[in-house]
Amino acid sequence: MEVTRKYIEFEGIKTPGGVHTPESLTWAWKEFEVRDDDVFNATYPKSGTTWLQEILSLIYSNGDPTPVKTKFSWDRVPWLEQHSGRGQVENRPSPRLITTHLPRFLFPQSFQKSKAKVIYTVRNPKDVCVSFYYFSLYAEFMERRENFQDYITHFLSKDVMFGLWFEHVKGWLTMKDNPNFLLLSYDNMTKDLRSNVVKICKFLGKDLDDAAIDSVVEHSSFKAMKENNMSNYSAVPNEIFSKGQGTFHRKGISGDHKNHFTPALEEEFDRIYKEAMKDVDLAFL
């Protein structure tokens, strides 16, 4: 893979170069044929994407941890829009578990005619911003900022990767009344993972017994994933992820923004949030 800090702009959204091409994005949007039993793990970046990859892998193995310990997460639940997506997804046997960061308006057009299911996980945007900042120091393909305050300005601009958090979330929330759409809260999951696993199983029609659910919870914990070389991105070369700058799994908590935002920054962020999300009810954040 070519490592570059250049972005590809596609329909007004910036995606990292190297892993995305205009062709791969066009294919995902206009040509990919969705199947009725596809399950999409959709997120804004740094909102629990890898966590859901692990949870879905374990649910579909009925709690057996073998797949998550023997196969990389990006192979188990691959990204649709990356240049490797077509080869990984197109001829995969059903049911296909697929990951995407695409905004709703760039989601596969064939989805509209299908019974496929989408799980969308949303996270407190202040925590997303903090996580994104540290990821930008670690990922060699991302733009960097000198300090966290500068990064907040970047995060609140249209230059941020995959577009503004507010627009991404609002776009996906247009589906909230669709029975094939499940909205999850990262913040609620950190408080009570088991009840959320049960909720996901019910949504997917997967009838797991208590022991299997316990196994899903155990093997998708932050500690288990951080120690699992199939899920912690330690296998990614240093020229892509600079290991000296941190680890992919940093804290896995809710509320870390309190350690980074000054009162003035928090007040300004809250003002922008209230204006951008004034017509949206996300009280559970």
Rank of each mutant, 00 (worst) to 15 (best):
W79V: 04
V68K: 01
L25M: 03
P78N: 06
V160E: 01
W74R: 08
E275G: 13
Y233Q: 14
P16E: 00
V118R: 09
N62G: 14
K202D: 15
E54C: 15
E33D: 12
I213N: 07
T50M: 10
G171S: 10
N124A: 02
F72R: 11
P78K: 04
L285N: 01
D214Q: 14
Y120L: 10
H249L: 10
C201A: 13
V128F: 07
V217C: 03
F148R: 03
K170P: 11
M225A: 08
D210L: 09
M225D: 12
W51M: 10
A116L: 13
F261I: 00
V216I: 11
I8K: 15
Y233I: 12
L97D: 01
P78T: 15
L137A: 02
K202Y: 14
K278C: 07
P16H: 03
R86W: 05
K243V: 04
I213R: 06
N188F: 08
I13E: 02
K6G: 06
W27R: 05
G12C: 09
E9S: 05
Y151N: 08
F248V: 01
Q109M: 15
K206P: 14
S242K: 08
T66Q: 09
G48K: 01
I8A: 10
S231T: 04
D209H: 15
K226D: 11
T21D: 03
A212D: 13
Q82F: 03
D279Y: 14
D150R: 14
T21E: 01
T49V: 09
V39A: 06
K126P: 03
A264P: 07
T26Y: 06
I8D: 00
S131E: 15
A211W: 13
E143V: 05
Y138T: 00
N178W: 08
I59K: 14
Q245M: 07
F222L: 06
T153P: 03
S131M: 11
V169A: 08
H168A: 09
D209E: 04
Y233H: 09
T26G: 15
D207L: 14
L164P: 05
N178G: 10
I13Q: 02
K69W: 07
Q245W: 14
K176P: 02
F72Q: 08
V34D: 01
G17F: 11
I119Y: 05
K243Y: 10
T190N: 15
L173F: 04
S231F: 01
Q82I: 04
E81W: 01
P237W: 00
